[in-house]
Simulated assay, not measured.
Amino acid sequence: MTTDAGLGTDKNQKPEVDFEKAHAEAVANEAVSPISKSVSEALFARLSKIRPRTATLHITKDIEIASAACNVDEVLRLAKRLEQTKHDEKAQTDQLLEISKEFSFEELIAAYPKEVISLAHELALLAINASEEALAKSKKRDRSTTRKKGNQQVYVISKDGKSIECTMNKGRPANPGVDRPFYEFLGFKVSDDGKSLSPDSYKDANGQTTTSISRKWIILELLKGNSEWISMGYTISEKTTTPEAEPA
């Protein structure tokens, strides 16, 4: 096999991927779906639990129980057992390290075909269950958001026998063009590109000139009884609505 001179490396060998770094970057990436992150967390947690069998933890727990009971003889007996167990486990770990130097990871796990297949099925099932759980939580949040939107107060603004129904916009106001019918009903002119209004200001309930123009602020001004809007013949009232029943 051809190798680089002086390096002893295979020219065709692909560079190793730093999966720990790649995983951390994916988890931190806002573009990655929360569902994908939930599945990733479940799989990582399961594989991270794989550890060599150890009896020292059980013996330590027994020592704590014996100490609490002031059973000195049992504590001494368990202490000797703990020392021997630690010695045996170290010898076993050293043996496993020597084996790992002789065989590759793939060769080692190939010696346990039944266990590997069982683990593969377990992880596949875990991925399905974690996905379904995350999807259920996502749908629950969506239903909650829908209910909140459905229960949002609707207002009716009227003038000269005509009226328009509207709600207070939440968050950053959209471009005027999105609410063209609303603004035109209130006497504004929306630019052709939908980005500006004319006039670009009005008198608020305190008689001050304001450029804060949005559905929310106009509705609030009408609710305050802004004399400028009232003088133009506008009135506002809350629309009585019956909340829709939740689907079974």
Results as ranks from 00 to 15, higher is better:
T146Y: 03
R143I: 01
R172W: 12
R172F: 10
S104Q: 01
L108C: 13
A136W: 00
E107F: 08
N151Q: 02
K170V: 03
Q153N: 04
L126G: 03
P176M: 02
D179Q: 02
T145S: 07
K159V: 03
V178D: 02
S131Y: 14
V154G: 07
S131N: 14
E107T: 03
A127V: 01
I157T: 07
T167S: 12
L123H: 02
I117Q: 10
L97M: 15
N129F: 09
L119T: 07
V116F: 14
R147W: 04
T145I: 06
A136R: 11
E133Y: 01
K140T: 14
G150F: 06
E115S: 08
Y183K: 13
K149N: 13
R147D: 08
S131R: 15
N169S: 09
T146M: 00
E98L: 12
T93I: 00
A91C: 01
L119F: 02
K101R: 15
V116A: 15
I157V: 11
L125H: 06
Y112T: 15
I99K: 13
P181S: 10
K149F: 09
E98G: 15
K148T: 05
I157W: 10
T145D: 10
I164Y: 09
E122I: 06
E133K: 11
R141K: 12
G171F: 05
L97D: 15
V154D: 06
N169P: 00
C166Y: 04
P176L: 01
E165W: 00
K139S: 05
V154A: 13
L96M: 12
A110H: 02
E122C: 04
L119Y: 01
A127N: 03
L123G: 01
A174W: 00
A120E: 04
A134C: 08
G177R: 08
A111Q: 09
D142S: 06
L126C: 06
S138P: 00
E122G: 02
I128R: 07
K139V: 07
S163W: 03
L97N: 15
G161A: 11
I164D: 13
S158L: 05
A130S: 12
K114F: 08
I128G: 00
H121L: 11
A134N: 08
I117D: 08
A111K: 07
P181E: 10
F182C: 09
D179V: 01
S144Y: 05
A120K: 04
R143F: 00
G171D: 03
R143Q: 05
P181K: 09
D142C: 04
L135Y: 01
S100G: 11
S163P: 03
L125T: 14
S118E: 14
E98M: 10
D160Y: 07
P176D: 07
I128Y: 05
P173H: 14
E165Q: 11
S104C: 02
F103C: 01
A130K: 03
D94R: 05
